[in-house]
Design a protein around this nucleic acid. Sequence first.
DNA 1: AGTACCACCTGACGGC
DNA 2: TGCCGTCAGGTGGTAC
Length: 260
Amino acid sequence: MPELPDVAHLKRYLDATALHQPVERVDVRDSYVLKGISASRLREQLEGTEIDSSTRHGKNLLVELTGGACCLRLHFGMTGSLRYYRDDDAPQYTRVLLDFDNGYHLAYVCPRKLGRVSIAESAEAFVENEELGPDALEIGRDDFLQIMRGRRGALKTALMNQQVIAGLGNVYSDEILYQAGLLPTRKVGDLDEDALKEVYRVMQRVLKASIERNADAEEMPRAWLIHNRGKGETCPRCGTQVRREEVSGRGCYFCPGCQQ
DNA sequence: AGTACCACCTGACGGC
DNA sequence: TGCCGTCAGGTGGTAC
């Protein structure tokens, strides 16, 4: 489920494979994933350009094209990914396919079609138009405190709201709250400054640690809750049975012993 | 403005 | 074996 660390990994993958090669052809295999642009327009915009560089904002990968004329935005929903390959057959569930003139291909793969592909003027314009909050990894502590101050709803809801902070989804918001020792349903407004500082500190630590491990859940430290998302699982710290509750419409896991 | 809730999509999985 | 219901979860729209 691509959240910030997963998209950071996909960015590294893109940067290591697909830069600076002329895009010969664009094949839109399922236009359902296109947002605000037709398949033919997307082809016009991309064919003949090269991928210059990429940036990431929250869960979005923003691919800068030569000339700076426009920017390809890739969002991966829950099951999306990229694959660079040379074989003849595109991977299953390829929705958009770029063919480079060196014989390689870049496939945007998205089985459940919850991802989105669009074109923006620039990365900055995209973030502004979507009214995304600051990136969860880039935001400074003081800005974080300011953004959270005065919020009324649940802590988990605020962390997952991309317009508040961009990048956290269900799994990482659970992990951060677990490691910060706070229940997901705690009201943001009830937390004192020290508690919010701790959330910020843990958020940075968790995101960085995950990116270092290529967002591979299996590689995360044993003490992380990410390994125990399931019924009947127990807390890696205290052994209490992990609880699952619906919070802001999502299956939320937490330890009633460690989180208050 | 901020919050809550449902629909969208489809593979995986469990029950029978 | 195969059918069917449920779950997963990031987003967008709507209602409050």
